[in-house]
Design a protein around this nucleic acid. Sequence first.
RNA 1: GCCGAAGUGGCGGAAUUGGCAGACGCGCACGACUCAAAAUCGUGUUCCUUCGGGAGUGAGGGUUCGAUUCCCUCCUUCGGCACCA
Length: 938
Amino acid sequence: MRFVASTMPFLRSYKMIDQKIYKPNIIEPKWQERWEKDGIYKSDIDKNRPKYYALTMLPYPSGDLHMGHWWAMAPSDARARYLRMKGYNVLFPIGFDAFGLPAENAAISRNIHPRKWTYANIEKMRKQLRSMGAMFDWRREAISSDPEYYRWTEWFFTQLHKHNLAYRKKAPVDWCPKCNTTLAREQVWGEDRHCERCNTPVIKKELEQWFFRTTSYAEELLDFSHLDWPERVRLLQTNWIGRSEGASVIFHTEQGDPLEVFTTRPDTLWGATFMVLAPEHPLVEKLTTSAQEAEVKAYIAQTLRQSEIQREATDKEKSGVFTGGYAINPVNQKRIPVWIADYVLMTYGTGAIMAVPAHDQRDFDFAIKFGLPILPVIDRTDGLTKSFVSCHSVVDGFIDAIEKTGFSYEENSEGWNFTFPVTKTDEFIQVIKEFIASKGWVEVVGSKWVFVFENEIIVWDSVEKDQQILKLCVERNADAKQYRTLMEMLWQRPFYRDALYHDGYGTMINSEEFSGTPGDLAKEKVIAWLQNQGTGKGMVNYRLRDWLISRQRYWGAPIPIIYCPEHGAVDVPEDQLPVLLPDDVEWKPTGESPLKLHPTWKNTTCPICGKPAVRETDTMDTFMCSSWYHLRYLSPHYDKGPFDPREYDYWMPVDTYTGGIEHATMHLIYTRFFHKACRDMGITKGPEPMIQLRNQGIILGEDSEKMSKSRGNVVAPDELVARYGADTVRAYLMFFARWDMGGPWSSGGIEGASRWLRRIWTFYQNLPKPGKPSIETLKNLRRKVHQTLKQVTHDYESFEFNTIISGLMELSNEMIKAGEAGAAGTKEWQEALEIFILMLAPASPHIAEELWSVLGKPYSIHQQPWPEFDPEAIIEDLITLVVQVNGKVRDRIEAPVNITDQEAKNLALQSNTIQKFLEGKEPKKVIIVPGKLVNIVL
RNA sequence: GCCGAAGUGGCGGAAUUGGCAGACGCGCACGACUCAAAAUCGUGUUCCUUCGGGAGUGAGGGUUCGAUUCCCUCCUUCGGCACCA
């Protein structure tokens, strides 16, 4: 009895038994029953009408329909209803994504069977869904945990396996210790790599698991040309798939083993001064010399341990060890050391890299830390050139001389910092040469790399020169002894830092015959050359991984595989599908599938040889179920295949798919992969499963935080429906925010929507008496009606639900005013009454049906055609001519709509208000926007 | 760090193409009805003002007769990715 005070109007209305008071709790169930009985929302194949498949993401049966479901579904339903009125044969189905962990967790904590828990929840949610008054065709309801459904989930697995798109491999996989199962990469979130469902940090486990070859479709998944999807989702998917173009280059170890690397920068090959392998790389053992063995083994052990306890995100410091082994750089035959480091991942590329420290930030950090040689091989594109001149390096008179030549500098206690364009380098060196002290040197860095000594000028253009120059420096200043490379020495001077490293595409330098190749051609030229030499080739790499689908849980579709000692992994024959889940299992979380611990379930015989064999005991990721539910809706009870091909040919593809953005890199990639794989197996047709996608935003609690039970900010739709009625909740949800944005809930706002519907109700129940309206009144009324119709039609097409309701609110305000002005009883009046209710029908279907019948119109409003606006009617005959002086609005003049520019100008100049602002001056210029505005420039 | 989106009254938000900023609603104030309250209806509501006006769409600059809208720089918030070679 929380709402005693506010339910008062309803309570009173019961007592008064007054038909004229709006009672949504009476009319809503009444119409829902009638619609159900008459079957007005049955969607059957009808080749005479254009089809429209409107799909909303299916809910998980958690047991409660929350505000997010309403926010996602109610406006989608309104739009589906609008399309139906537009003449489409609309399919708007519903079902349940009914497999999954929460059911099993409930079983563990409350000792209820997952099936019982799930189906009780479904029953409850069906009731809640019905209260929404949506046009779901319940005959097409599909539940993924029904054997008649998962029979086909298993069947799809078998098909994928037969076509080599499903495979089994041992791999380090992400494991959630709380959910006691493996997770797909997409289900691991955040910096601390936690489980998407329960937030527990995941650990790595080495397990034999089933995968789908999503990577085979990486390139095609990047093609969105057949899709009308939000840019945001396309971008998320594009980044997730992570295409990078480059080359595969084959290095060789000194012992002669090929060592393949992937690089996006083949143009930097001459700057590859060392190599780094992932600690798990197969060649590590062979490369490691006995002297380095202990260190290497310790490092490998450390990284393995680290990956289990999670690498600290704060620990960005590079680590690694030298193997003692060397490789040969194939472009210049130079011998370069091979290291191992955990910044190279075994799971990307080949698990080995060529390190180009001068042009890759990570390699640079690594080289600086371990004193490895760094050689710039790409010219800077910004021409940044720097030189620090110590006062000990030059003799008296230097600074006067350099000033005379026009160089500017910053002075500090040690000397002078120069920054100048690369074109002035020679001039700079000339002056330095003249004033260089015998125990000094001066270096130029950035766009040129030159060291000036008393007797010679040395250009730093090779790794050999690095050491040679360093030696000369040490001779002059013993402090330099501590540095292993020139770059390490230069790095100590903060002034230089921004000039030492860059990763831009500039002209190649220090690269033998390729030196001088411009940056925009460098990559392709080197790739062509590598290909010619047989040492490499162009290659594309993707960040996307294959989809790990094994789950060590009970409540999912079993993976239909039998392991035979003789024949290996054998598919369960199609006529034996589905592999049914046993009912009697132990829930205790052990880290093994409960199916594995069942005493008999896994024992079977090999379909090939008939000898004893065991079943796969893992179940499938539930994203597998949701990858094809849009197909099961077409014929949920069909038993000759996953779907009835006649239904498929009529309804597919999905025309509009609505749901949350959180699925961008999970469900929405999986379902596209699934469709394309099925297409290649001859099961589905067309390039894509869902043509148009629109995402709703998220509704937050009133405190602007995510709704959650623990926060106590959950707004329950059931309570709102009981208090205000579904029509009000629907209208308010459409009104209160942009659908694609969402935002914090406002309990005050819904009162506004409630008032509005009550006002409409009262208005239609007590229509004003006919009067003597002016022609103007009627014309204005009709204009407003048709303008609103045009706008609302447009807004339904483009998912702008909030302006649909505000437009209808405006119109209803106008209609009330027109009624007061005596418009009742005219044909314009009647038209307004009807069109308004027709436009309201998709948003608030029950009140619309009731008021439609009050108008004496035939049942059902939801089978009426959407009205067409009259282009003649929307034309204004008076415009407000805005008159500006110097861009500021100074006057507004009513003028006929067809006013000429000259007339508009005259009218503006004649206005008394404007005269005042002109102050007798002659306008310099008059800008006229026809029918809108005059701007007088003084 | 990289990529992306968004910043408009007290609040949610509106503004077809660069052309009247703040539609519609909430809230608030005042008034009507009422013994009273609720509900309902009406009026007002960006800020400042010397009542002439002036300022104003995160901040600063630019293009333009004219910028919430286009361009540049920056700030804040949110989302995604994060040693991806």
